[in-house]
Structures are given as C-alpha cells and as structure tokens.
Nucleic acid binder design. Sequence first.
DNA 1: CAAAAATAAATGCATTTGCATGTTATGCAT
DNA 2: ATGCATAACATGCAAATGCATTTATTTTTG
Lengths: 169, 169
Amino acid sequence: MTPAADTMVERPIGPAAVDAEGSGLSFDLNCFLPYLLNRAGSRLASIFSDELRRFGLTLPKWRVMAVLWHKGEQRIIDLVEETSIEQSTLSRLLVAMDGQGLVSRTRNRLDGRAVVVTLSTAGRALTDQLIPLALRDERAAQAGLTAEEIRLLHSMLRRIYRNAAGPER
Amino acid sequence: MTPAADTMVERPIGPAAVDAEGSGLSFDLNCFLPYLLNRAGSRLASIFSDELRRFGLTLPKWRVMAVLWHKGEQRIIDLVEETSIEQSTLSRLLVAMDGQGLVSRTRNRLDGRAVVVTLSTAGRALTDQLIPLALRDERAAQAGLTAEEIRLLHSMLRRIYRNAAGPER
DNA sequence: CAAAAATAAATGCATTTGCATGTTATGCAT
DNA sequence: ATGCATAACATGCAAATGCATTTATTTTTG
C-alpha cells in the first residue's frame, strides 16, 4: 500500500509508532522491559563469555560453577532452576564438565533417581580465579549508579523474577 | 567510611558465602547483577516464548518483528545490533521468516552489500496481535513496582547497556 | 585508477540446544 | 505387597547456534 519508498530509508518517521489499522496501537521498544532486560543481559554475558574462552569455559559452564561455588553440591534438577538451563542440555553439559574435571557426579544414596553434582577441587580453584573477573565486570557495568540505586535495582530484578511465576503457568 | 570491603557489597541479606579454603573470597550470586539480570530475563523470555509457539513463532523471530515494527526496515547488521542475535544466525533466521511471509529481504540499491529487511503486511498484522500480549506480560512482571521505580529501572538498564561497551573492548 | 582494506551477508561445519521419549527409581493408594 | 502415577535423569534426533571462512561490494590509499 505504501506508495513509493519500497526499500527506501523512511528514517525520520515517528517512533512510538501508531498502527495504521486505526487501533492506535503504541509500542516503544526502548520502554519495553523485556527488551531492555535482555539487551543489557546479553551484553554482559557476551563480555564475560569472551573472557571465559581462554579458560576453556563457556557461559553455561561458568553459571553452573558459580552456583555450585555459592550453594554447594546440588542435584541436576536444582541446577536447572538456579541456572535457567534446560534439563537435557544441563545433563549433557555436566557430562562434559565432569570429563573436564570441573565437577563430579554421583548417584544420590537417599534417592536413587537423583544425581548430585559437586564442584571438584580444580573446579573450585578455577572459580576462585574467575570470581574476581566477574566482579570487576559487574562493577564496570554499574558505573554511574549509586549504591542505593544498585540495591533498588537488585530488589526490582528479584521482584520481577518472582512475579514471573516459576512452576505453574 | 567503607569498612575493609574489597569487592564486598554487604547486602542486608545473607552472609555472602566465604570460601572455605581460606582465600576469603566472597561472592553472593543473589547480589550479582549479571545473575539477577539473566534470571529475570530468562523467565520473561520463557513465558512469552510459550505464548509465541501457538503462532508458529519463536522468541528470536518475535524480536526481529518487534524491532522492524518499531524502527521500520533495517539492514541485517542493524538487526544484529538491535536484537543481540549473532549475524549468521540472523541471516538464516531471516531466510526462514521470509519463507513464512513475515518479512521480505531486498538488496539495498545504494549499497549492494546490504540486505534491507522489511516487515510484510502479514508480519505487521501478526505483530499487532502480539504486542498486546507482550504488554500484558510486561505489566504482570512489573506488578508491585511504582511508575517511578519502573522509570528508574529502565534508566538503569539503559545505563548498564551503555557501560558494557558495544563494539571495542 | 589499481590495489589493498574494510563491510555486509552467506555458508560450511561442528557443537549446542530443545522437545519428545525412554529408563530407572520413588511415592502412594489400595 | 502390587500397581499406578510421579520424579529425576539420560538419550535420540532434528533444529538452532556460533565460529571461521568465503563471496560480493564498497571505501580508502598510494
């Protein structure tokens, strides 16, 4: 329908676009929380991911290590919850990490179904090395924010996480 | 004023874990911005992803559509920036979306290297349908936050995005 | 203007991912 | 106990992803 300008550069045209059909639909990505959230998260992830590469690690592996470092040995299903990594993906990731000597997997005595994942000594040592780098990147990302703002930010992110129901849906 | 706190953040909450090996390393995931950011982002993504499935869409496809809806036709390289999707992945994703009739790809007249991606009429109509759902989920996620807090949150997320340098590094 | 450097996409290929399903081990009700 | 529903993982397999490289097209240089 749009006359000329097929692949032309309609640049200046207004943002906060309004639907042509007359529904008056308004949608500004720059004010859309999921967008802002993922954009910021992706960048942070990308940066640290680059640093991890020379340690023979990937972001998912680091996430697993960080959780185990912080919370101690966990069942795979718990790690799924903590890391947001899909179960089958995590299952195989852990086999690889076990092969790398980063973690060990043992069948739970009390519940024969569960596998308990533990950070190995080497894994812990490596995590000890990585944490300072992670914290440095975090500080860089937070530059310009006051301690009070950062606290509020954390609080809001936790709140959003809770609002987005976990189990059901 | 700051007590002997190296990389500490001293949240009111929990006594951030302390390494047993005596390194004194402290690291609390629950106060680690990248973790909180990705955790919240993953959940929101997961929720909307489920809704998208019955439209034959995926999250990456929705992101492309949302950007095109909001900013108009874009080159692939620009979409890489806007969506945080890797270039080769995006290249192939767009072929698929073209096949679905969601977008059209045309060689740029002014620069023979670039491909200009445009949201098709059908793609726009579908996006019009999706936007209300996306906004509904966003509102649900923000429940309990004041308008002022949300504004600050957006501002901080944009700041973090900028702090995490884009191209160089 | 020719050659070199840089851009924008597309492609090859190995790896990772995710959904559906299979396997084994518990929990529960009868 | 026995049988059935569930829970925790593992696996098969197709699709998605990412890195390195290639191809085509500007831009920049000498």
